[in-house]
Amino acid sequence: MKAAKLAVICFMVGCIFSAQGHQHHHHSHGEGVLFVVHDQDKWQVKFILPAGDIFGFEHQPETAEQKQVIKKTLAKLENSQQLVTFNGECKLIHAKFENPFEHHTHHAHQDLEVEYSFSCDKPVSKVTVTLFAWTEAISVIEAQWITEQAQGIAELTATKPYIEWPL
């Protein structure tokens, strides 16, 4: 039964990430998207953020300074707490993101996609976006979540950077 439940949740996550992240997400400066999915002690988090708001530009880096900005920012993303924290005791299992400028593309707008997987030893009732603390360029994050108890949508800002639910 657990394997079937996990398969359904994984399918739902794939559908949400695929559909929302690529078809319905419109690229708007100052706005990002967050998906949070929970199953037992596992948590998946995915951000889709405009590269211009994270790096300060969307074109291929042209100067040594821009290349350094990319390097520093990608290093910052290795620490998941730079983007998100949980109120439970959670351990980062996996981080996945790529330099959006690494592959030459003809898109006028670049997005940065960041995915984290966590394992939490204690129940989680609150997820906080810490990204607002280091980039003022993002003013709104549209958050969607699915937990074992509930699902929902919320608009997160620097003054209300979290989603929470009763345990």
Rank of each mutant, 00 (worst) to 15 (best):
A3K: 08
L6G: 03
A7M: 11
V8I: 12
V8D: 08
C10G: 10
V13W: 13
G14V: 08
G14N: 15
S18A: 11
A19R: 11
Q20E: 15
H22R: 15
Q23I: 08
Q23M: 12
H26Q: 12
H27S: 09
H27Y: 05
S28K: 09
H29N: 07
E31I: 05
G32M: 11
V33M: 08
F35R: 02
F35P: 00
D39V: 10
Q40T: 14
D41Y: 11
D41F: 11
W43F: 14
Q44I: 07
V45F: 01
K46I: 09
F47P: 04
L49C: 01
P50K: 09
D53S: 08
D53T: 00
E58D: 12
Q60T: 12
P61D: 14
P61F: 12
T63M: 04
T63R: 00
T63Q: 02
T63V: 01
Q66K: 05
Q66M: 12
K67W: 15
K67F: 14
Q68G: 05
V69D: 03
I70L: 01
T73F: 00
A75M: 14
L77S: 01
E78L: 07
E78R: 09
S80E: 11
Q81T: 02
Q82A: 11
L83Q: 01
L83D: 00
V84L: 09
V84E: 09
T85F: 01
F86G: 06
F86E: 09
N87V: 12
G88Y: 10
L92D: 05
I93Y: 05
F97C: 05
E98I: 02
P100E: 08
E102Q: 06
H104K: 13
A108L: 07
H109P: 00
Q110L: 14
D111M: 11
L112F: 01
V114F: 00
V114R: 00
V114A: 02
E115P: 03
E115W: 10
S117C: 10
F118S: 06
S119F: 12
D121P: 07
D121C: 10
V124F: 09
V124M: 10
S125A: 04
V127R: 01
V127C: 03
V129I: 04
V129K: 02
T130R: 09
T130P: 00
T130G: 03
L131G: 02
F132S: 04
F132H: 07
A133C: 04
A133K: 15
W134S: 11
W134R: 12
A137S: 11
S139Y: 08
S139W: 06
S139M: 08
W145V: 05
I146A: 05
T147G: 08
A150D: 15
A150Y: 11
Q151T: 06
L156E: 07
A158I: 06
P161E: 10
P161K: 15
Y162C: 03
E164L: 15
W165H: 09
L167N: 14
